[in-house]
Nucleic acid binder design. Structure first.
Lengths: 115, 115
DNA sequence: CATATGAGCAACCTCCGAGTTGCATATTAG
DNA sequence: CTAATATGCAACTCGGAGGTTGCTCATATG
């Protein structure tokens, strides 16, 4: 593997790790589930039904926003958060590439055994 | 949403969050890339080419193993780690469901606008 | 047997993530 | 104007993740 290629894939790895980290929390997964299935919602709305503080939910929303999974629009005195599918689609593609590579390994192994 | 259904999905969320957390690290993503593209490798082999200690790599491998992404087989004095695609496929399906739900929301919105 | 190699275990340190509380600010409602 | 609502900001605690060092154990190898 070339030096440049290594650096590029390292940068991609860093980015993917960041998005994975944003999803590595039960509360944030719950927020994603809520937001991907409906209209944009305010922080107060998203806090309702949770046992956590509004500030805790706010922090989680900022983490999701930094990862690009969600974006917020200020509307009057409330800021509404909406889902953005792009980062999750990137992750899905990444997981697909990993699976595909593994399938190639398996098929090569099968060929070796059969030969 | 029923109480039981809520608990079930909460348990699934917990599990998904755990697997996401296992992928939320650059070093572990690198290990996954290495292992999904080749034969099982020993800890010493996986440590070579990294600036980290063997114990650090060992800890990362244990994290991946707890998430089911990797499994180890002791062979003589070395333990070989191999890739397991099942957990990543679960994540891929999960991300697919989220995207599908979002697409439904968009199409409903479009219908409303057109009507 | 003696030695080198691969790995496990435990203690320790540092830093960040998650959550809380308290207060300040802006906007809507009456 | 005044009060209530929605949010932002800062400081603090607490626990766990990531990493290291040092030692021990097991297994090849000469």
């Amino acid at each position: 593997m070339s030096r440049v290629g290594s650096d590029l894939s390292a940068a991609k790895r860093r980015h993917h790790a960041a998005v994975f980290a944003a999803l590595a929390d039960e509360t944030r997964l719950s927020l994603v589930t809520t937001l991907c299935g409906g209209e944009p919602r305010s922080i107060a709305q998203l806090t309702g039904g949770s046992r956590m503080t509004r500030q805790a939910i706010t922090k989680h929303l900022r983490v999701l926003e930094c990862a690009g999974i969600v974006h917020s629009v200020r509307s009057g005195r409330e800021s509404r958060f909406a889902f953005d599918p792009a980062p999750l689609n990137e992750l899905k593609e990444y997981l697909g590439r990993v699976s595909a590579q593994w399938d190639q390994v398996l098929s090569r192994l099968k060929t070796l055994v059969e030969s």
